[in-house]
Amino acid sequence: MIDALSYGLIIVGIIFWFWGTLPLLGNRSVLFKLHSLSVSDTLGSMAIVFGLLLKIPNEWSLLILAIITLAIWNTVLGYVLAYCSSSNKKQSINNQ
């Protein structure tokens, strides 16, 4: 039961990865890609780590640390990347 649940979570995480990474290939703007990428990377990775946690509970400290790291730093990284790329664009428009 728990084994099936963990495999299911890992597979859901990988599906999330593909769903968020495939828009990278299109010709969309950086912010659109960033949105889908940060959502899918954070949620997909967290699902994978949860699946691993159910599968092998004796490494729980490490895996919970990974989940907290993902939740905090991936969100902050999304903000930082969006801020840097958009302010750069505004500046180049002003220069032209």
Partner: peptide, 24 residues
């Protein structure tokens, strides 16, 4: 360059999660 940075962000997360999976 920003598209490359996005790709790098994706790769950095994915490689470390793969490492975690292999370690488990």
């Amino acid at each position: 360059i920003w598209q490359k940075m996005l790709a790098f962000a994706s790769i950095a997360t994915k490689t470390s999660i793969m490492m975690l999976v292999i370690s488990v």
